[in-house]
Every structure is written in structure tokens, then in C-alpha cells.
Design a protein around this nucleic acid. Sequence first.
DNA 1: TCATGATTTACACGTTCGTTTAAATCATAT
DNA 2: ATATGATTTAAACGAACGTGTAAATCATGA
Lengths: 274, 274
Amino acid sequence: MATVRKQASTPGAATRERILDAARDLFAEHGVQAVSLRELTSHAGVNLAAIHYHFGSKEALLAELFSRSSQPIVQWRLELLAKVRREPDGRPVLEDVLEAFLRPALSSGRRQNATFVRLRARLALERNEATRRILRDTFDESSQEVIAAIAEALPDLPELELYWRFHFLIGSMFYTMADSGRIQSLSGGKCDPGNVEEVLARLVPIFANVFREGCNAAPVAAPSPLREPTVETNAAGEPSPAKPRKAKLNEAKSGAAKSSAAKPSKTRRPARTS
Amino acid sequence: MATVRKQASTPGAATRERILDAARDLFAEHGVQAVSLRELTSHAGVNLAAIHYHFGSKEALLAELFSRSSQPIVQWRLELLAKVRREPDGRPVLEDVLEAFLRPALSSGRRQNATFVRLRARLALERNEATRRILRDTFDESSQEVIAAIAEALPDLPELELYWRFHFLIGSMFYTMADSGRIQSLSGGKCDPGNVEEVLARLVPIFANVFREGCNAAPVAAPSPLREPTVETNAAGEPSPAKPRKAKLNEAKSGAAKSSAAKPSKTRRPARTS
DNA sequence: TCATGATTTACACGTTCGTTTAAATCATAT
DNA sequence: ATATGATTTAAACGAACGTGTAAATCATGA
């Protein structure tokens, strides 16, 4: 009996930590909703009930994971922000401010837990109010300090423009953090956003230019080609070429896929003969 | 009997379309996994089984929804790309190329279905292989045409740099499309990424500058402050200040929250007296 | 050594999920 | 009018979900 006693594979690793590690990895890979507590605990090598014993609920586990993993990032950011170099006129060096903002976010602490970076990027696009509040409470303060530092570095930049460009910056940042693999696919593997130093070496000077570039850039000079598509879709896309599917009558003659488009043809209907 | 006959609220609206509309809205708002077929059908005002009758499965519904909604976007993009203005030397106008790329994505066809834009942004961060393939199959071809047009407009820009900057561009684009509300929160509501024209008026010239700006921007001139956080977290964050929670023995004396950190205190354990 | 509390285990609960089925209903051509 | 096929309906299936609970096990100080 007694299953396997203790295994002693990782002696000092407490159950809590194993759960948090597994949650970080699995939540980042598949999303919070898609991960069941059973696969989580089995992946962590702990008992199912351990989650409720140590955290109370799945949601509480996520909150604990997030606040714990975020703390070093925010702290590092504030440290970097405090030691930003100054221009002769006393203003912060813009590149240093941007790096203080980006480096901790992209590196995710000193550990190899690159997976939390992905989790954060994923949660950043969530529209769930609870998730938004967690992100706000965790990162807004230090983000506001970064924004204030940028404003200090560029006193002539209108506040609204600063916010717009900051929005585009965090877009590029989160998309890099998410590691969607899209640009690897498009570039044939030549571009690797997983390399933090390579990302910073490009993102920092690029957005330093973006922020510095005054509002001089023509507002929207382009006469703009056209604004509506000429495609004549009726109400949604196609008229109604693809009929649903035969309800009864599974005649064997039309066994192959109809022809509608290119469906995955997942054997649309078993239609057992019984 | 016969429940309610037909209701005739929207006479011509077929069941298929009601399902697709509801799926678009709900998937975009809460994510695919988080939406059950029951809330979907009840939101659409159709029977639960209608989804399997018309589409076969939840996954097939998503694929159908995506391909149908994407088609006008891609088509519009290709049309705009075909009528991009040319410089006197015959090269494409970079701003027009960027607008051809961005406008259809941000506008989502001619309809008011801004929700599909959010759905697409959400799926873009998904790491699910099936989802990635859908996105690749749908958008890669037209994206490659955009990349080729940019390369044609900027023949001196190294290919690798082009891909990096395109990566940052689609990051800003997707984050704008996701409408996470973060920049509204940070800017106190002054910045509204939901306004497509306002986004384009800023994003197009900004990234035109980004692409045009040669590799002259100092590679990474910054001596870079420090690269590791000084915070001394052991293994994960905190030593072990917050004890789990009492297992048995729900003594009434310590009824209030322990003090650990600032937990949501969701009544960690009911511990019914029975 | 033993008592005690912290932790882990096995198991079951009620619910909700995606899916399926068979019958009822609708639309329409003859 | 009626037959026929398309569509909708109500009800149920088994599986998997998050959660709860009582007992077994472990660690440790007296």
C-alpha cells in the first residue's frame, strides 16, 4: 500500500512551491481557464486537495502566484528607475528610463521563469475585471513613475501624445512577452523575440525615437485610399453556399466531404446505424 | 404548447447567424474556453443543440466564425495594398502600406463588429497550436505581401531589422485591438484606443518613422544600469511568513484573518460545525 | 516515547460541461 | 392537402470540473 511513500525527488521543495511552479507554467502555456486543478496537481506531483489546503481556491492560487511573481519585477523596476542617469541639464536619460521599464518586465526576475512573463502578457489582454484589478494594483504605480520620468525627460511632449506612445510601447512589450511565435513564422525563424538583450537593444532606441519625435509628424497627411471594403458580402460573408448538414439519412453514397469549403471534416456526424 | 412559436423578433436572422454573432461577442469578451455552449445559445436565443446541428462542435464553430469574419479583412487589406500610391521613383508610399495593413485589422470589415477585432487580438496571444494554425492560414499571406511592400519602399533596410520592427508594429496593433483598458486607466481616460481614426493618425506616421529610421540608432550604446535585481528573494519571493491555514480546529478565538499579507479573505474555510 | 498539530491522502459531493438522441415542428413542392 | 426533408426542441448521457471531508501520515518538542 501507501503509494510511494515520499519519493524524495526534490526533498526541500515544499508542496506550495511545486504548485506555484506548475501553475505558472501551465497557466502561461494554456491559459488559466483551460487548466484543471487535476492536471495542475498531477503535473506538480501533489495531491488534488493540496491546492485548497494551501491556497483555498483556484482563483486565490492565481492571485497568490501573480503577486508573488510580480513583486521582484516591480522592485527591480523601481531600483533601475532610481539609478537612471541624468543629462547635464538634470533631466533623466530617456533610454535609461525605457530600459528600467522594459528590462524587468521582459526578464521576469533573475530566475529562468520566462513562463511568468508569458502569463502576464496573457492576463494583460484579459477583459475580466478581477484580472484587470490585479494588474492595476500590481503595476500601475511603477508604470506611473515611468511615465512621470519620461515626461521629465521630454518636458515639451504633450501629455496625451505621451500616453499614446506609451500605449504603443506596452503593446510591443506585451506582444514580445507573449511569444506568440508569429514573427518566427513570418521571418522563417530569423527573428527571435525570446532573446531579451536583442529585444532591448532594438526596442529601447526605437521607442526613444518614438517618444522624442515631436508631434511634427504630419497629423494624418495621407488622403487615405478608401475607407470601406468593396467586397459585397451580404450580412456576414457568404450568401449561403454551405448547407448545414443532412440531419437524418446518412446515405453512404455521399460519404466523402460535401465540398462546402475545406472543413476539418471531423466526421461531422457518426450517425450510428442502430 | 409550443413554447413561443417563432417570436419573429428578427425575422430574416437565421439561427446560424445568431449563433455566430453571439459567439463573436462572447468569445471576444470572456475568451473561448470561458464561454459555455449553454450561455452562448441562451444569449443567442436558440436551442442548445443548434450549435452541433449547424457547426458540429464548439471548435468548428470557432473556426467557422474566424474564417468567415476574417475574409473581408484580408480582402480589404489586399485591395488597399493594390492601390497604394507610388513615389516618383516608383516605390510604394510607406504610409499607404502601413495603412493598408492596419486599417482593415482595426476596423474589422465595414460592420460595427468591433468585437471580432478583440477576439482576433485575444487569439493572437494564444499558444494553442490549432489556433496558431488558423491565424497563420488566414493572415500570413497578406502579411507577407505587406512585408514585401515595406521592403520595396525601403530597399536599404536589412531584412532582419524589417522583421523586428514589423513584430513591434503588430504588437502595438494587437494591443490596441485588444482594448484592455489599461491606457485609459493610466491616462485617466484621456487616451482612447477605441477610436480607429485617432489610432491610425498616430500609429501610421510613428511606425513609418520607425521603419525609415536606419540601423543608425546606436546598437545598445547604453552602458546599461544593472542587469540583476538586488532584492534577495529566496527561491520565489518570501521565506515563508504566511503559514498555510489551520487544517482542523477552527477555534473561534482567532476568527479574524491571520495577518499574513492582505489576502482577499474570502472566508478561507467555512468549516461547518456539523 | 508519545502526544500534537501540520500536512497529505483517498474519496466522494453536487454541478456543469460538450455532446447526443429522438421526437416535435416548420417550410415547401407536388 | 399532404408528404418530405430541413430545422428546432426537450431531455438526457457520461465525463470532467471545483470543492469538501474524514482519515492517514508526517514532523517534532516534551
